Computed example of a mutant assay.
Amino acid sequence: MLLFALLNLPIEYYTLLRIVVFIGALLVVVENLKKLHWLFIFLLIAILFNPVYPVYLLQKGIWMPIDLVCAALFVIEAIKKSEDDSPVTTDNTDEAKKYQRDKII
């Protein structure tokens, strides 16, 4: 949605964009409470796109790089999240591990 915001669209789209980005940023904040850099970055995005007290920068030229950076940050977060959720693979040996203590004397 942030990439579509680079086009000239009706104001209703940008209102919906504010709501979606605000909710998405808050979800990322909740998931990253222990990672302070992600928390502050997405908290700033939530403040910038909040629909209750909107920030009006009045020129599309100012919003365009903000939209691009925010879109990139959401993509990075999605990739990071998918890597965290991927199953952990171990070596392909099916036999039990053998330790020195298991030696028969």
Rank of each mutant, 00 (worst) to 15 (best):
W63E: 04
K60G: 15
I41S: 11
I62D: 05
V55Q: 01
E83Y: 09
T15Q: 14
Q59H: 10
S86G: 02
D84C: 15
K34A: 12
L26S: 03
L9C: 00
L7K: 13
P54M: 04
F4A: 15
I76A: 15
L27A: 11
L9A: 06
R18P: 07
W63G: 01
R18H: 01
L33N: 07
W63N: 11
R101C: 09
V69Y: 10
K60E: 05
D67M: 12
L36E: 07
L26V: 07
N8I: 10
L33D: 00
V30A: 08
L68G: 00
I23P: 02
K80A: 15
L2W: 03
F22P: 00
V29S: 06
L6I: 03
L2N: 01
L26H: 00
L26Y: 01
L39M: 09
I105K: 12
L26A: 01
L44C: 07
W38Y: 13
L3W: 14
T89Y: 08
E31F: 09
T90F: 15
T89R: 12
L27P: 02
I23W: 11
I62A: 12
M1K: 13
L57E: 01
E95P: 00
L48A: 00
I11S: 07
T89N: 10
G24S: 11
A25E: 07
P51F: 08
L27R: 07
P51E: 06
E12I: 11
F42K: 02
L27W: 09
H37K: 14
V29H: 03
E31P: 04
C70R: 03
L9T: 00
D84I: 13
Y13P: 04
K98S: 10
A78C: 06
P51W: 04
Y13G: 05
P51C: 06
I76R: 15
D84Y: 12
F40Y: 11
I19K: 10
V29Y: 05
N92K: 12
I76S: 15
R101Q: 08
I11C: 12
S82K: 12
L16M: 12
A25H: 01
P54C: 04
I105C: 08
